[in-house]
Design a protein around this nucleic acid. Sequence first.
DNA 1: CATTTGTTACGAAATCATTCGTAGTTATCT
DNA 2: AGATAACTACGAATGATTTCGTAACAAATG
Lengths: 125, 125
Amino acid sequence: MKQNLKPTESELEILNILWTFGPSSVRDVHEKLLLTKEAGYTTTLKLMQIMLEKNLLGRDVSGKSHIYTALVDKEQTQGQMMKKMIETMFNGSPVQMVMQALGNHKASKSELEMIREYLDKKIKK
Amino acid sequence: MKQNLKPTESELEILNILWTFGPSSVRDVHEKLLLTKEAGYTTTLKLMQIMLEKNLLGRDVSGKSHIYTALVDKEQTQGQMMKKMIETMFNGSPVQMVMQALGNHKASKSELEMIREYLDKKIKK
DNA sequence: CATTTGTTACGAAATCATTCGTAGTTATCT
DNA sequence: AGATAACTACGAATGATTTCGTAACAAATG
């Protein structure tokens, strides 16, 4: 019954929108998607229907337009994706990945400080 | 002439082997690959030939067996992949990603300390 | 009521990624 | 040389993902 097929790239984009904005119609999702990429409406629709079949999404059919919800957990999915990436590109070392992320993408000083604080707590334990 | 097609999952595995071990024959790569996954020899061969066409790899044809080299930079490629992941799953925030990585994957205390040190340096600048 | 607009359903094409069989080449070994 | 082993080349099957057209229907509009 339960399965956890890894979401595809496009599916992730949709999941992220639902995680961020909560339950939404296809049109809502589609409009958010357009901010980032080209896509036809029926393409988005079809994708979401497929995700429904894969149990990545659920939906409420009672109204005129159907309302979809993410059925997979955000943190868990992020974790899985990261794990895979760490394995295939960072030889299994999360630390390597973190340094790469911090090195390449500029974070503000206050963001860096947040991380340091977080680390401090983690190290003390 | 220039192109930067994002490497596929399988291609990343191969790139990572070449980054780690340096220029290698198909057989060498294939053997390393086998430690992790099932794969036929000609499958690996074909993949590497395709990567050659995409200019992800170069090769030296002078010997009996060809020797392949990664033509794309490790850090740069990692960076691109991370960037995309940060965009599609972490709403563009590298910090969110880092915290997720540190939270979900256990790192040893000394590893964490390495990161903190790195951060300290970065913050001072 | 007739038309336009917005929606779902769904098949099927297009594209991309992966896998493998087979043929042919070159080297090695007896 | 002849046989065997290790390669490369490459077409083609398979599989997965993405894209889109078209049909059908429902709601809203004039």
